[in-house]
Design a protein around this nucleic acid. Structure first.
Lengths: 369, 369
DNA sequence: GTTTGTTCGTAAGGTCTACTAACAAACATG
DNA sequence: CATGTTTGTTAGTAGACCTTACGAACAAAC
């Protein structure tokens, strides 16, 4: 550890403070960070020279003393490109501000397996061209198991195994690129923009079921970079639906969007009566929610989680399903640990992976999250 | 972050390197840490002055050049006192070397609830007096939920709630004191002395069932310092034994030593035949192991654990129980994640909490673990 | 209008940390 | 014995942050 590492840490500390607390003076930053005003002035001068911070004029005097010069991140001076490869029928890309707001959005149809990289490169190039400010970097959220250098260890859907996607994009685009698993990206979005706490599990329900975990404010990657791969864990001891993986009672067989919609439409056909059809629908969703609670109870116990966030189609997740999950967790964990475990939908909507990809860039390039 | 923090980090880096790799020269340390020989000399001089490092004479020359002066931790220059409050019938204390070897061992009967602190203080004082070298600090592993400052948030057994045990001992003993949960201490022992990897869960089976978790080499404490409290998580969806907490099918009701021994002895009375009695015994243990596997499968999936370590009576845990656990994990998690999940007994035996308490002191005082 | 006290930002100088460059000591080898 | 290698130290330098001191800009009190 060298002194210049401490310097980098302090640079990030200043950026982080401005990012979360908004415009403030050098003196405010000094009080907030514990560094002296002199050191803050020095760091700020460097950050202004690098174009990350700007002076926003003087604050109208509210008391005695010289009025402060307000500083802020140059929130319009840079853009981030985020890309989401997790949707079942398209790739989605966007240009985002440093605050995670989407400025431009592009969607392209899912290409053939051989053209995936070329398609992503082209999508990224278009977005970079659309950005009217320098692009800080490109974040990508993808299904599959991804290591810390953005190498896809396994992604059955794209036929990747040991493929250095980050390196390939880096080389083609000549900009900083960061690649991570889609659910891991999503939990970062929830942490930075969704007000999630330091210990949170995000369960992402789509074609499959995955999750991203933050413990103590740090993303968990696991011993083989496969943390969060929860879709094929068996739930309960009483059988269950057959899963595509061949086992019985996998969480994914209970909870994935295809599994749920199949069961719901089968029930709708069986039932003529509109009233009972609503009950049947609720029962199916409640069952799925209960299964999620059964699977998560040991995780909540071991990790002492305070918050579980659901991401996916709200018409399926938000309602009886989430309700059943929280009730099941309550019944299956000790009073002490469920008291305060919240289960809620994300408020990031469809853009959660895009915004999470932006957080990856913020974190990697500025040390902000 | 100040330069002196970086200095402290580098001091710890040197100590850590010597701790794990044994005696070596300044030039070796330089190569190992990436710091220059000059900086290493400076740091080592400081550490020698502080009494943590000693020169052990020259290494017999194996090639050209000036022979190296070997350095090592002064492993006999300091002792650590460890105390284990988790046993059901006694408090155990020990004087340990920096390598975790037990030099002196003392055991005292469990006192009345009001005398717990006084008893621990007296035990610690005796051990400090027995130590023939300066005591680096006192580590305590206790049942209950403990925060990062050693405040016992809840410990029903001792009737503690919000009690600052660390502060009380610190004041009475006038030495650095560190207090943590017993299972969390145990997993540290397994990590530092038992060769466990960076992502490991230790399940401690005794009067209750608790666990300690290490993820990415860092101890996890959870959002309310209750990480690892797994005893009262419901397992499976087919009922189970009644638990003291009033629920049905808690892991503790399946797996705790009192629950297991009760079921085993009941079965032994029922069965006259010696041969079938062995089968019955094995069946009971296998059932318990299967339940542990059911509970841990989602945890292994979410955290991508590579290693699960069992601590407790080997005559119960080591054999059919552990075997059933690993088989159940294999059946209930995706191939990818079980491949390489090892389930094994600890080799630290009865002293695991004592040694874990020593690691807490090593880590807190020297930055070594 | 003047004085007083406060707050902001900057300048100068000092301390601490780790680095590079250079060198003496101690050894093996041809 | 001369040469080359490795170790550990000395001397000097660059970077990072600190303390101290000061001018600028303001509010409040007189």
């Amino acid at each position: 550890m060298l002194p210049e590492h401490a310097r980098g840490h302090n640079r990030s500390l200043v950026l982080q403070t401005l990012f979360h607390q908004g415009a403030m003076s050098r003196a405010d930053l000094s009080r907030e960070t514990g560094l002296t005003r002199v050191t803050i002035s020095d760091l700020v001068a460097e950050l202004i020279a690098d174009g990350f911070v700007v002076e926003k004029g003087v604050r109208e005097a509210s008391g005695p003393g010289k009025p402060a010069i307000l500083l802020d991140l140059d929130r319009d001076g840079h853009r981030i490109v985020g890309i989401d490869l997790s949707e079942s029928d398209s790739f989605i890309g966007a240009v985002l501000t440093l605050d995670g707001d989407i400025v431009v959005r592009r969607e392209v149809a899912l290409p053939a397996a051989d053209d995936v990289v070329a398609t992503v490169v082209e999508l990224a190039r278009e977005l970079v061209a659309e950005s009217h400010a320098p692009v800080l970097g490109i974040g990508v959220g993808t299904p599959g198991v991804v290591d810390e250098h953005g190498v896809i260890l396994t992604a059955p859907h794209f036929g990747w195994a040991g493929f250095d996607l980050e390196g390939a994009l880096q080389k083609a685009l000549n900009l900083p690129v960061l690649v991570a698993n889609d659910a891991n990206a999503a939990v970062l979005a929830e942490y930075t923009f969704g007000g999630a706490g330091d210990d949170v599990l995000l369960v992402k329900v789509g074609r499959g079921v995955g999750s991203g975990l933050l413990a103590g404010g740090q993303p968990m990657s696991g011993s083989r970079h496969a943390a969060g791969e929860i879709g094929h864990v068996t739930v309960g001891t009483d059988g269950g639906p057959l899963c595509v993986c061949g086992k019985v009672g996998c969480l994914e067989a209970w909870l994935s969007v295809p599994a749920l919609t199949a069961r719901l439409s089968a029930a709708a056909i069986d039932s003529d009566d509109d009233v009972s059809s609503v009950d049947v629908r609720e029962g199916i969703l409640r069952d799925a929610g209960e299964r999620l609670g059964i699977a998560l109870a040991p995780v909540v116990g071991v990790l002492d989680l305070s918050e579980i966030v659901l991401a996916g189609p709200p018409e399926l997740l938000d309602g009886p399903l989430a309700q059943a999950t929280v009730e099941t967790l309550r019944n299956r964990t000790l009073a002490q640990s469920y008291e305060g475990v919240r289960v809620r939908m994300t408020e990031q909507g469809q853009d959660i992976v895009l915004r999470g990809a932006a957080v990856m860039v913020l974190s990697g390039q500025l040390g902000v999250s």
